[in-house]
Amino acid sequence: MSIFEDDAEKKPVAHEIGSDLSLISVDELDDRIAILRQEIARLEEEKSSKQKSKNDAESLFR
């Protein structure tokens, strides 16, 4: 086992905010858009969950 194997196994980043898009194909752009939409949905779901918890706690102390 080489000490350099860990570097070779790293997966490429799905999308990096602000990266150069000029060399990316339309299909890859579609893939990145889908990944970002899934992440947005995940963030919104977590936000809703936290907002509900916050609202429940606030109503308890009124």
Rank of each mutant, 00 (worst) to 15 (best):
L21K: 06
L23G: 04
K11M: 09
S25A: 05
L23T: 00
L60E: 13
L29G: 06
D7C: 08
R32N: 02
E9V: 09
M1E: 13
D27H: 06
A8C: 07
V13P: 11
K50E: 10
I3L: 12
I3A: 13
H15L: 15
P12A: 04
D56Q: 12
L23W: 00
D27P: 07
E16H: 07
D6Q: 09
I24D: 02
E45L: 03
S25L: 08
S19H: 01
D6R: 08
I40G: 04
R37L: 07
A41S: 11
E44G: 04
F4E: 08
G18P: 06
D20N: 10
E46V: 10
S59H: 11
L29C: 10
E45N: 13
D31V: 02
S53F: 15
E46H: 10
V26S: 09
D27F: 00
M1Y: 15
R42K: 15
S53H: 12
K11G: 01
I3C: 09
S49T: 13
D6E: 11
A14Y: 01
R42S: 12
G18C: 01
L23Q: 03
K54M: 14
H15Q: 06
N55G: 07
S48L: 07
E28F: 00
D7L: 08
E39C: 11
A41F: 01
I33R: 07
L29N: 12
D31N: 05
L36P: 00
S19N: 03
Q38M: 08
I24L: 04
I33A: 11
A57G: 02
K11A: 13
I24S: 00
S48M: 04
D31L: 02
S22A: 02
P12H: 01
D7K: 10
D7P: 04
K54S: 09
A57H: 06
Q51K: 14
